[in-house]
């Protein structure tokens, strides 16, 4: 097991280094120059000396290799540089915004799982009944509807028409718990719908597969209660394929739920990323993309480890290999 963990850890670090190189080069291939934007938007009559001075100040006049090494050196010292525009340290910008994203990610994941797991389980239990048909339709609708559409519908109903919930902003939980929950609710439901739909789809199909397994028939033959069969045998064994999907979702959420944060004007990592893209704020952008890549790599690493914990067969197979 230790060898397996070590091998996966080394692979993850390698992937992270490769990602950092890719991110660094690709961002600089996008047309647009942050110095032009910084010196006056449409850049009317800006003295070329101002451009040169700014490029020098930002280190953009150095070779790409030098800039990359400088960036990595900074990261190793937990220094992601300064935003070209706001002049804030990138670490400050990220830590300031991480709360809004993490809260949204956590609440929406919990809500998504709370919707998906019972729904898929009940669908499997009540197979071919009305609920199952409704679930299939709902899942298809959830998969097909883009998050921003769900978000706008929720804003119009609960924010504008009923005026029940705020449609914008973020209040830290420690500052005002009630307001904090109110501000997270609509974006979290929006994301939860998007999260629940694929989980239901995979979990539902996995439950069907497991339901026809010999050990389930044995359990039924032994006369075990249906609740015990479902909770004790059916659900744990059907969870493993779903775990991969949950891993991808968690990585995505931690990287910043760009569209939903933008629709709800939530000051999280997603909206920070959008602004950084618009402004070509390389320092902020490359730190965020690296963070998103790291979130994916770490999550998939954890998921791999969880496979072993949840399914002894995989653990044994890993040891044999």
């Amino acid at each position: 097991m230790a060898t397996y963990v070590l091998r996966r850890a080394v692979t993850s670090v390698g992937l992270l280094v490769l990602s950092s190189m890719l991110i660094f080069v690709v961002l600089r291939l996008i047309p647009g120059d942050p110095t032009v934007l910084k010196l006056g938007g449409s850049g009317t009559d800006v003295d070329p000396r101002a451009f040169e001075a700014l490029r020098h100040e930002l280190g953009l006049d150095r070779s790409l290799a030098y800039q990359y090494v400088h960036w990595i050196d900074g990261i190793l010292h937990w220094d992601f540089g300064l935003s070209y525009f706001s002049q804030y340290p990138v670490t400050t910008l990220i830590t300031d915004r991480a709360g809004a994203t993490f809260q949204l990610a956590l609440v929406s994941l919990l809500l998504g799982l709370l919707i998906a797991v019972p729904a898929a389980t009940l669908g499997a239990v009540w197979r071919n009944r009305v609920f199952d048909s409704l679930l299939s339709g709902g899942t298809a609708l959830g998969m097909a509807t883009p998050s921003f559409v769900t978000g706008i519908v929720l804003i119009v109903i609960f924010g504008v028409k009923l005026d029940l919930l705020p449609t914008q902003g973020y209040v830290p939980f420690g500052e005002d718990p009630v307001e904090s929950v109110k501000t997270v609710l609509l974006p979290a439901v929006t994301l939860a719908v998007a999260i629940a739909a694929p989980i239901v789809l995979i979990l539902r199909s996995s439950l069907d597969d497991v339901a026809s397994a010999p050990y389930i028939r044995t359990a039924q033959g032994k006369g075990l209660l249906r609740r015990r069969i479902v909770l004790g045998h059916l659900l744990p064994n059907a969870t493993i394929p779903t775990l991969t999907m949950v891993g991808v979702i968690v990585g995505d959420l931690l990287g910043g739920t760009v569209i939903v944060e933008y629709v709800f004007a939530r000051p999280g990592l997603g909206s920070l990323m959008v602004d950084a893209v618009y402004q070509r704020d390389y320092e902020v952008l490359q730190a965020l993309v690296l963070l998103a890549a790291a979130a994916f790599i770490v999550t998939s690493f954890i998921v791999d480890l969880l496979y072993g914990v949840l399914d002894p067969r995989l653990r044994v197979r890993g040891q044999e290999a």
Binding site: P31, G32, L37, G41, S42, G43, Y278
Partner: peptide
């Protein structure tokens, strides 16, 4: 185009 791409087409002078 987005603002950065837009401005890059004709600037800097």
């Amino acid at each position: 185009a987005d603002p950065a791409t837009w401005v890059a087409k004709f600037n800097p002078s």
